[in-house]
């Protein structure tokens, strides 16, 4: 009996130790896989953020999709996340306390199609699918924005959507499957466009009706640590500068991580439309569209969601 109590106390103490806030300063950053996150990957490889935050432990977490990052930030397991603007707005609308603290990249997103399967969007019918990462993702919202402008109804093709990860979507588009079009982002879109029978149906800017930031940096309100945010910004800015001024070296570091050769990595990093900077463009246009089409319920203004410095 005594040993049982001792064991129980030990188990409980181990379980509860996780709840006690340690004094050590840590910052937990989530990133996803993709070319648009290149500055983060670079900052991670070269310890650029650690350099500007010597007193901090920086924990990097590579996460598969935005929903997981959002859940991690909701459970306080993550402090900083990087994602598209629409998923951020959905979380904000649902009551998540978080703010955008920087932009990271613009990228040539777009809807590609397999010419052997269809020749225009009108030909999409019950036999076909449009693949994209998930409902509410920037790819889905961009497609809906395009459809709203072209057909008057944002969700006119919702019945034909198929959610699937970028690499599986690429596979499905090129193979003999029902996926006839794919709304995706670099590097997958670059690889698809290399094929003879694949072309752009709509590119991201055309769908949006202007320029927009693809990936933004988001911080949980409770994290509330300007010192750490400044450090992260400096580290990421340094990585951005490196990609702009010395893309060859950046490609050399990133190539093995992306599983590509250096030459390809360099061409992808410098691809027309790949633009790394801290601008934040398009918040209110996204939020206006999403409100109008019931993806969110409240009006969200830029000043509500920007983390004031």
């Amino acid at each position: 009996m005594k040993t049982k109590i001792v064991v129980l106390i030990l188990v409980l103490s181990v379980l509860l130790s996780g709840c006690v806030n340690s004094e050590e300063k840590t910052v937990k950053i989530a990133q996803q896989f993709g070319l648009a996150y290149a500055p983060l990957q670079l900052a991670k490889e070269l310890d650029l953020i650690e350099k500007h935050l010597p007193d901090y432990t920086v924990e990097w977490k590579q996460i598969m999709n935005t929903a997981t990052i959002r859940e991690g930030m909701l459970s306080s397991d993550l402090d900083i996340g990087f994602m598209g603007i629409p998923p951020f707005l959905i979380g904000y609308d649902k009551g998540m306390n978080w703010k955008i603290f920087r932009g990271l990249s613009k990228a040539p997103l777009g809807l590609t199609y397999n010419k052997d399967k269809i020749s225009s969007l009108e030909e999409i019918d019950i036999k076909h699918k449009i693949a994209l990462p998930q409902p509410g993702s920037i790819q889905h919202i961009l497609l809906a924005m395009y459809l709203e402008r072209e057909t008057g109804t944002a969700n006119s093709l919702d019945d034909y959507l198929l959610t699937i990860s970028h690499p599986d979507g690429q596979l499905a588009l090129l193979s003999n499957s029902e996926v006839a079009a794919h709304f995706t982002s670099p590097p997958y879109i670059f690889e698809e466009l290399k094929e003879d029978n694949v072309d752009f149906l709509v590119d991201g800017n055309e769908a949006f009706g202007g320029e927009f930031t693809f990936i933004v940096g988001v911080v949980r309100d409770k994290f509330n640590n300007q010192e750490a945010i400044d450090g992260i910004n400096k580290g990421v800015d340094e990585a951005v500068e490196m990609i702009i001024n010395d893309p060859g070296k950046a490609a050399e570091i990133l190539a093995p991580i992306y599983g590509l050769d250096e030459e390809t990595t360099l061409s992808y990093l410098t691809w027309d439309g790949m633009d790394f900077n801290n601008e934040i463009l398009g918040i209110e246009k996204f939020s206006g569209f999403m409100l109008r089409n019931d993806y969110i319920e409240t009006e969200i203004l830029e000043e509500d969601v920007l983390n004031e410095q």
Binding site: A67, G91, M96, Q134, G136, L161
Partner: peptide, 20 residues
């Protein structure tokens, strides 16, 4: 995700998840 015009329960869960 979705199979046919309406998906199954898994798809329902995904839809709820992505809209938090």
């Amino acid at each position: 995700g979705v199979i046919g015009a309406t998906g199954g329960l898994g798809w329902y869960l995904v839809k709820k998840r992505v809209f938090l």
